[in-house]
């Protein structure tokens, strides 16, 4: 639904470039292409440039942009659509692959267990990210936090998975299929 560019243009048609989304975005200062510009690119038919932006992966989906938009443009939804497109096209910005990896690892994790297995998530993410960019600091990050979390019973080696994991797998399969 989001992935075709005509659907996207319907989403962004009403934008009059006031910039209120950019103004309220907690991450805008760190963005290469700010939210209002992403919407503008989509409006102007330059979706591809938008899907290569780092900024789409910086978005924390806080919905501030959508909520305050005077034209009721679902800016957060637009960014979701751009991310989806970006992941599909393989145009994820180099610096942001780690984030994209995280999302993918997250979904793989759910697909396997039905529910999130946090410990496995952390492990898998670090491994994958390490394989991609060989970042030792990332590998070590939070290493000190783990024992503390454990102490507070906040880390479960084996979270409770869902009972019917096959259905979850089928849902994933059907959604992936529907996309193509």
């Amino acid at each position: 639904m989001h992935s075709d560019s005509s659907g996207l243009s319907a989403l962004v048609n009403d934008c009059y470039q006031c910039g209120k989304c950019t103004a309220g975005c907690p991450l805008a200062a760190q963005m290469d292409i700010v939210p209002s510009q992403l919407v503008r690119l989509a409006q102007a038919g330059q979706v591809e440039r938008a899907t290569r932006a780092e900024s789409i992966w910086l978005c924390v989906s806080c919905q501030t942009c959508t909520t305050r938009c005077p034209q009721s443009v679902d800016v957060a939804g637009v960014i979701d659509a751009l991310r989806e497109q970006s992941a599909q096209d393989g145009t994820v910005a180099k610096t942001q692959r780690r984030t994209a990896i995280f999302q993918q690892v997250f979904l793989d994790n759910i697909r396997r267990h039905g529910r999130l297995n946090e410990l496995e998530l952390v492990g898998a993410f670090k491994t994958q990210a390490f394989l991609k960019d060989l970042s030792i600091p990332l590998l070590m990050k939070d290493a000190l936090l783990a024992p503390q979390m454990m102490k507070r019973d906040k880390l479960h080696f084996a979270g409770k998975p869902a009972r019917d994991r096959q259905v979850v797998d089928r849902i994933f399969a059907k959604c992936a299929e529907a996309k193509v």
Binding site: H2, S61, F172
Partner: peptide
């Protein structure tokens, strides 16, 4: 699915 599904696959 939060906070990953909506960024990767809308249908999911």
């Amino acid at each position: 699915g939060a906070s990953a599904a909506h960024t990767i696959n809308h249908k999911l």
